[in-house]
Computed example of a mutant assay.
Amino acid sequence: MTRYLCPKCRTNRSRFNIIEQVATSVKIDPQSGEIVERYTNDNLDPFHIPYRGPQFRVQCGVCGLVEAEERFAKSAEHQP
């Protein structure tokens, strides 16, 4: 695990929420908004790009800031 420091409130080093991001690829009917089809990474159609975002994000348990893990880790590196 990596040490964190909230880049916004600059006081929290111990209370965080790890938010796991689980992407679901779908095709939606443009008129009704209904899900027409669900995809897996093995059966995406040629016009559907697989999710390439971060696997998780971090939320400060004090001020509520939600950012990429790297921001919290870099803050901890710069303020030992």
Score class of each variant (00 low, 15 high):
Glu20Pro: 02
Phe56Gln: 10
Val66Met: 10
Ile35Phe: 05
Thr2Phe: 01
Ile49Ala: 13
Arg71Gln: 10
Thr11Lys: 14
Ala76Tyr: 02
Arg71Lys: 14
Ile35His: 05
Gln55Pro: 02
Arg52Phe: 08
Asn12Phe: 09
Ser14Cys: 03
Pro46Val: 15
Gly53His: 06
Glu34Arg: 14
Leu65Asp: 09
Tyr39Cys: 03
Ile28Gly: 03
Pro46His: 11
Glu20His: 07
Gln55Phe: 06
Phe47Pro: 00
Phe16Thr: 07
Asn43Pro: 05
Pro54Asn: 07
Asn17Glu: 12
Tyr51Val: 04
Gln21Leu: 15
Ile28Tyr: 02
Asp29Val: 04
Asp29Trp: 03
Phe47Lys: 06
Ile35Pro: 01
Gly61Pro: 04
Thr2Trp: 00
Ala73Thr: 15
Ile18Pro: 01
Glu37Thr: 12
Asn17Asp: 11
Glu37Val: 01
Val36Gln: 11
Phe72Ala: 01
Phe16Tyr: 15
Asn43Arg: 07
Pro50Asp: 13
Gly61Gln: 07
Gly64Ala: 13
Lys8Phe: 12
Leu44Glu: 08
Cys6Asn: 09
Asp42Met: 06
Arg13Val: 10
Gln79Asn: 13
Ser32Arg: 00
Arg15Val: 14
Pro80Cys: 00
Val36Trp: 09
Asp42Arg: 14
Ser14Gln: 13
Arg15Pro: 00
Tyr4Ala: 03
Asn12Gly: 02
Glu37Arg: 13
Phe72Arg: 00
His48Phe: 15
Ser32Asp: 01
Ser32Lys: 00
Pro50Ser: 13
Val66Ser: 12
Gln31Thr: 07
Pro50Arg: 14
Thr40Gly: 13
Arg10Met: 11
Ile18Cys: 08
Tyr39Lys: 04
Gln21Thr: 06
Val26Gln: 08
Gln79Leu: 11
Pro80Asp: 05
Gln79Cys: 02
Arg10Phe: 03
Pro30Gln: 02
Glu70Phe: 05
Thr24Trp: 03
Cys63Pro: 06
Phe56Pro: 02
Cys9Val: 04
Asn43Trp: 08
Arg3Ser: 10
Tyr51Ala: 07
Glu20Arg: 09
Thr11Arg: 15
Thr40Asn: 04
Asp29Cys: 11
Arg10Asn: 06
Pro46Gly: 05
Phe47Leu: 13
Ser14Met: 09
Phe56His: 15
Arg15Asn: 13
Glu69Ile: 01
Ile49Leu: 10
Gly33His: 07
Lys27Leu: 05
His78Lys: 10
Glu69Arg: 08
Cys9Asn: 08
Arg13Asp: 07
Arg13Trp: 09
Arg52Lys: 11
Thr40Ala: 08
Val66Gln: 12
Cys6Tyr: 10
Glu37Asn: 12
Asn43Met: 04
Val62Gln: 07
Gln31Lys: 14
Ile28Met: 04
Thr24Ala: 11
